[in-house]
Each structure stands twice: as C-alpha cells, then as structure tokens.
Design a protein around this nucleic acid. Sequence first.
DNA 1: GAGTGTGAAGTAATTCACAGCG
DNA 2: CGCTGTGAATTACTTCACACTC
Lengths: 219, 219
Amino acid sequence: MAVSQRKVANSAIRRLSLYFRVLEELAHEGEATASSEILASRTGTTAAQVRKDLSQFGSFGKRGLGYEVEPLMKELRGLLGLSRRWKVALVGAGRLGAALIEYPHFREHGFEFVAAFDSDPAKIGRRLHSLTIQPSADLAQTLASSGVEIAILTVPAAAAQEVADAVVAAGVRGILNFAPVRIRVPEGVSVNGVNMTVELEALTFALRLGAGTDRPRKE
Amino acid sequence: MAVSQRKVANSAIRRLSLYFRVLEELAHEGEATASSEILASRTGTTAAQVRKDLSQFGSFGKRGLGYEVEPLMKELRGLLGLSRRWKVALVGAGRLGAALIEYPHFREHGFEFVAAFDSDPAKIGRRLHSLTIQPSADLAQTLASSGVEIAILTVPAAAAQEVADAVVAAGVRGILNFAPVRIRVPEGVSVNGVNMTVELEALTFALRLGAGTDRPRKE
DNA sequence: GAGTGTGAAGTAATTCACAGCG
DNA sequence: CGCTGTGAATTACTTCACACTC
C-alpha cells in the first residue's frame, strides 16, 4: 500500500523496468491479463519476487485473475518516470554515441535528444541524427538554457569525470555513464553506469570455470 | 586460501573487473602497491569488501603494505580469463555492433572479433573494421569452424532468442546480449546482458523521487 | 605501525507458505 | 478455485572488528 518515498532496492527497480517491457510484449500479443508467474518466467525471476516488487507500490493485482496488462503498464510507466518526456543530451559523439542517438527504444519511451557534444574539432558542426554536434565548451550554456535533465556520457574513460562535473554544474540531475570508470557526483545527482567491459569479463570468468552464469535456479 | 570452484557472488565478480581496471590505472600512474582502501575508493566500495573479494581466491596482499600492483593484476587477469585470447563473433552489424567492434578496450584485453553477421541482405559483404559481414544463415558453419566461444548479440529484441539458439547450437558457450530481452539458454551456457534501457529507466525512477541513486554510503 | 585476512555480526534480498479475496 | 499480497524464514551479501603479519 505504501506509495511514499520508501527505500526501494535497486535490483527491484531494474526488475520493474523488465516487467514493463514484458507487459508491452503481452499487450502487443493481445493479452489482457498477466499472472505473476508469466511475468516471472519472461523476466527470469520468481512469481513471489514479482508480487513482492509490485506490492510495495500498491495492490495492482486481482486475486484469482492476475494483473490487468494495461492498468499495470500505466502504473509502471508512472513509477519509472515514463509518462513524461525527458530531455537528454549526448556527450561524446563517437560511434557508440551515434548508435544510442538512433536507438529507437529511447525515443519511443519519451527520451528526446536535444543536444550532442564532442570535444573533437573535426566533429563540431557535423550532424548526428537531426542534431548538430556542438563543442563541449558550450555545454554549460546550452544545457542550462535547454532544460536538459539527463546526460548520456559516451566519452573516453579519461574524460568521464571532467565531463560529469561539467554537466552537473550545468544543472543535469541524472547521468547515464557508458565510460568504464566510476564517476563521482554530488549529493542529489543520480548516476547509472553501463559497463560492457565488466559484463564481458564476468562472462569470461564464468567460462573459465566452465559453468553457466544464469541467474535464478527456479525454472 | 580457497582456489577451488567456490560459489562466487556475481556482484563480487563484477567488482574484480573494476579492481582490475583501477590497477591498470595505478600501474599507468607508476604505483607499485595499492591498499584495499585505494582500490575501494576508486571503485566505490569499502576496503573490507575489497579484501573479502580478493581473499576468497588467495592471499595476495602483504600486511602493513597492501597489494603489489603488478602481481595482483596478474592474478586478476587469470581469474577473469584475460590471460588468454577469446575469439568473438558479432551478430547484428548495426550501429551498436559497429561501435563495439571498434571498441579498443575489447581488443586490448584479448577479445578478438573473428566474424560478423547480419540478416540484412543490404549489409552482407560490406566490411566492418577488417571483417566482411556474413549472412546470419552462415552462422552455424562459420562459428563451428572458427572456434568462436563468445557471441556478442546486437540484434533487435525480436530476433534475440532465435539468434541465441543458433549460436548455442554452433557451439558458443558465452553470450553478451545487448538486446533488451532476457534470452533463455541451456545449462552450461553463460549469458550476461547489457540493458541500457533498464539503466536509463532506473535513472528516471530515481529522478522522479528527486534522490541520488549512488551505491555505497561509506565515503 | 600499517594494512591484510577472516570469523562473527549485521543488513539486505529472496523465497516460502499460506491467509484472504475475487 | 486461482492467484495475489505479505509476514516469517531463509539465504546471500556486506560490514565490523581484531588477531596477525610484514
């Protein structure tokens, strides 16, 4: 029943995002309801986990029936902040940045790229999917005036902290960091990292042992 | 002291990868030793955690001194499977795939792309960073004959499971999945996912509450 | 003296199991 | 009945604290 600002486990939040995606699939498949069991098997967790995760935000299910797909999607959209648009800036207009700015999934879920920056003079002025690449030096000015709240960092590791400091100074409150280093931000700013090197090395660790990584035991 | 096949926590494995990267930095900075405290502060965890993580594989440190950078790197390289080369295939030669195949970090750590596949006839035959893009139909044949052990999947969500089945059938034992869906694999195959949508939505969840996400309390 | 290695203690996350409702 | 919602039990992970070594 608790909807207030409670301590929500990070892992639970990420699962909410997974549930949401599965619900989109189910809606697309024409399903009207979804049991915790379905949600669990499609996301690789357990039915009890799904119910626990959802129940900390409200009683969205109907006993004997399951969860109605559309209403639950709406709830999750609200929880995850997907019922509004977010202005996003890309910092680092390399190949990865170019890939992300085109990634349809972001656009479809309300993330709108409104600026792209790079420090390489050769890239300044070039177009990237409807945006003109601006010099990183203009970061502070452009971000502040355009109301950007999220920065996606696809810069080299060595530049990541400096760029993070700059976007935070420009008022950005959320950072999605693709550089393989941990960046430090002041209180009140959120950072999530996507570290593909770590994931790849976790994979080779598992391969070296000759075992499967796979998460949950319950099939 | 235990070096045998212990149940190693997933989170611990990922931290090992982080420690390794920090050690590379420290080596580059000319440091000969590193305390658990340094490793902790640079990776965002606690000194006790660092020691616990490392101690489950051996006694690598010297009391009163810390860890010697080079020897510890060597240990971690071994643990993480980075002391050998891995042949990697890229499946999905879109923008993201193109970005990954150029990502210097992978190459520098022993990951060698030996084949690239796509199902789009328009892309077949085109070059991608020294590789010629092959039709996905050739997957089975090429992979089996080239000894590829790891597949990196950058295909659309809808195709991910099908592609995963194909690479597993071709003998691949490890998959790094960039598609935003969970893929199911048989026992003995490892999958790690990089889901940037989840990370971005975890970020907007945090922003919606107006709080910082950041991991550990201890500074 | 400084900093590791590690049992013990504490905290967090997951799973169980079942009452209760549609 | 079937399936949710949830306290209680369990398991996993982290932090403490200190003996021990260099």
